[in-house]
């Protein structure tokens, strides 16, 4: 999580989750993490592993590059 301060990773998880009508708990269950981890991801306070990023992409039905970017969206 220290790496987060050095290399910020921007994401669009929250708007895509809301557009899909999912709660944080539902998305967390779909990708196999704790509901708080979704909150940390949405706020950009945690950078996911590649596996988790791909799971999120699958759960939200969007390519991973639409979810995450090293530059602000």
């Amino acid at each position: 999580m220290g790496r987060q301060k050095e290399d910020p990773l921007f994401n669009r998880i929250e708007p895509l989750r809301v557009a899909k009508g999912l709660s944080r708990q539902q998305l967390a269950d779909a990708v196999g993490v704790h509901y708080q981890t979704i909150g940390y991801l949405e706020r950009g306070e945690y950078s996911p592993s590649l596996t988790l990023a791909l799971r999120l992409s699958e759960a939200l039905g969007r390519p991973v590059e639409e979810l995450f970017s090293v530059r602000p969206f």
Partner: peptide, 10 residues
């Protein structure tokens, strides 16, 4: 999950 493991390990 992976965030909790990273937090715990740190």
């Amino acid at each position: 999950d992976e965030r909790q493991i990273a937090l715990r390990d740190a």
